[in-house]
Design a protein around this nucleic acid. Sequence first.
RNA 1: GGGCGCGUAGCUCAGUGGGAGAGCGCUCGCUUCACACGCGAGAGGUCGCAGGUUCGAAACCCGCCGCGCCCACCA
Length: 859
Amino acid sequence: MPDRPTLEGLEEKWAAAWERDGVYAFDRAAPRERVYSIDTPPPTVSGSLHVGHVFSYTHTDAVARYQRMCGREVFYPMGWDDNGLPTERRVQNHFGVRCDPSIAYDPSFEPTTASGGGGAPEPSAKEPVSISRPNFVELCLRLTESDEQAFEDLWRTLGLSVDWSMTYTTIGPLAQRVSQRSFLGLLERGAAYQLEAPTLWDVDFQTAVAQAELEDRERPGAMHRVRFGAADGGEALIETTRPELIPACVALLAHPDDERHKGLVGGEAVTPLFGTSVPVLSHPLVEQDKGTGLVMVCTFGDLTDVTWWRELSLPVRSVLAPDGRLAEVAWGTPGWESADLDKARESYAELSGRSINQARRRIVELLTESGDLIGEPEPVNRAVKFYEKGDRPVEIVTSRQWFIKTIEHQEELIAAGRRLEWHPSYMRARFEDWVNGLNGDWCISRQRFFGVPFPVWYPLDEQCNVIHSQPIAATEQQLPVDPSTDVPEGYSAEQRGQPGGFAGDPDVMDTWATSSLTPQIAGQAGEDPELFAKVFPMDVRPQAHDIIRTWLFTTVLRSELDQGELPWRNAAISGWVLDPDRKKMSKSKGNVVTPMHLLEEHGADAVRYWAASGRPGTDTAFEAQQMKVGRKLAVKLLNASKFALADLPAQGDELSHPLDRAMVARLSRVVAESSESFEGYDYARALQRAEELFWWYCDYYLELVKGRRYDSSPEVAASVSRALRISMSVFQRLFAPFLPFVCEEVWSWWQQGSIHRAPWPGAAELDAELGGGGEIEREELALEIAAAALAEVRKAKSQAQLPMRAPVTRVIVTDTAERIGALKLGADDLRQAGSIELLETAEGEEFSVEVQLAEEAAA
RNA sequence: GGGCGCGUAGCUCAGUGGGAGAGCGCUCGCUUCACACGCGAGAGGUCGCAGGUUCGAAACCCGCCGCGCCCACCA
């Protein structure tokens, strides 16, 4: 035991020891009922970590450590989510490249702007270099490798008790096999299908996106009142924020009850500038009090257009190209009729090739010139849907995509959500809201490059047309497969792209389509059946509340589809870290706090203490002050342990002193509360209860028993010696899930083995120390009153500005007969702790203490 | 528009039917033999507002106000 214990160096010392001794290694020989498995969130490896990661992963680690100490064999893997758009975008910026799948692989390619990875992205002013898909994927892997090392270093410094031998990545061969195998199973059972249909589309990334990846952003727009021609030579006025879609108009709609437009419904209207006849129909979703009550349906301006298009069986008249520009249109061909083809061509030529915004500005000019714009456009602020990682609003583009059926499973998903135990329980509402609000099946294909490919090919007919209806599935032996380079069974490589040959599916799966299988990936479903049976269904999914609709929802869906059961029993939902102004931390706001320097400045235990103080599900403001408090607690644990354990006299066989027994009784209750809190995933409460008692223990109990602890006679010290061993052992273990480094340190001073494999303290063992004696209530009363009297003595000294060791001539404690009787059980300790020469008691109505200081007596 | 959560000391928050609390910050004091990375003491609150239930409400119920998050078919 060191003379002056310190926190410095404990992280390095114990992290190395834990690794060396395999303290956190998962023992797969353990029986199923003893296994506690965690579906760890694989953090998105984007090169930057922030303090929010530390926050929620600490919560999980505290629970993992608690369960491990309870005797469970904890399956706690780490995963890296490196697959997907964030990595692609980072690689593009970092290396100044762009992926072009039509280019052939160049084995000698070396990026020019590479800085070795890890650091901040270096925006390149130069035009990006186009490289092949394999070269691009290589760069993605190179960059994520260094990112993953940085993450692992951070987690080790933070003291996460993961088993690092179980680490997976979402782009690795294991994840690809599991993901592709699951997809093929869905395909075989008809739960996955492909369809050419209107799809949410990001025009910058040029890929489909899912409903779950949308977010609303307020954007200024303008409402334009536009005149359509009516059949009787009259006019029909509509209002729109998207006049550039007038050439894509396929109908006008009114509400069935709307008297104003009764004359129009059933007839036709003519688009301005383009002269295209469109039907005027009615539909109950039209809101009469919006605009003129007459609405233009385009293919496609928003999701409502899709609904109307589908329900009213309207034709498609699509003007938007995948790159977000207005496509060329062959006026005069079917679907592009006009009463005045020259005018339509002339008008459209002004728009063709322009971006949406450019086209909008231009068509407003054209409508103004033609007199079809009524009045001035009226500025409006409106919520526009964006892909959450995108910079321009999502559009709806018709394309062929893969879907997983979800709508037909809504009811069983709700039921599954109700079988799951949510912590905190109210988080389930978010899940149900989301499932109830689903408006389509889950689109999982992305027109991107760094992802898990769809493991299918298609036959080509003699004209090289792709026969999408007859996908050729990869075989189990081929997995993981890349259909852009691998060849389906029964074909040769030369037949790729040839008449009568084959073509690979060009798309990759959305990153959620793979990360929705983290329990199966971590548990190695289909790869290691014995392991999978040991860990699945998992005990807990820890995650933040913002991805309930994505990660949690999709994981439940996949598990229901593949295993027919819940992926886990519990969902432990954590909040966010907000900046001190209670705003969400985000890179764009520039308020992100990175964690490494915090760990260096305050120490891992202190940072963990702050994190563990954040209640489950609750957003917590970042506060360095709390870390200082955590550091104080860790230091206190060092010093109290030293006091309690250094050169401790021999302990007796039993706790005989009333105050010792009373302290242990209190401790027993806190152990019970702390355990109960942990069982309900309320780590914060478990910490708070232990901490509260610990400070009281240091301030009162340790001071009260100091005299006996240093007493030279073994009989006097025997009980307190035993009490100190018991209590320090319990406190050290109660704090071990939160402050693993300092607890391991103080444990090592006097115990064998790691504290993190020591048994969690039980109230029963403490109650056994007390025996069944009926005196315990009275003994607790003695401790309570002795502590209160000591506080009064301190108060007197403090107000007289005297040191705490100043002698007190006389103290009179007044209280009821019963309480005075109890106090006598602890009178000796009180006298000693307060440096009281004469301690008297008196019976009275209520508790009061009269203190006569030596100085006062002298004066 | 709907759902969920929150509103308690300057700050961060605990407290779910009976005494308004903790830590930090602030003020004052103390080299105390575990700890100056310390110890002791003190000031500081209309528990968002208004009703109701109850012997008794910070807590339970109703309404309102404010903040946050999520969702929705705002043309």
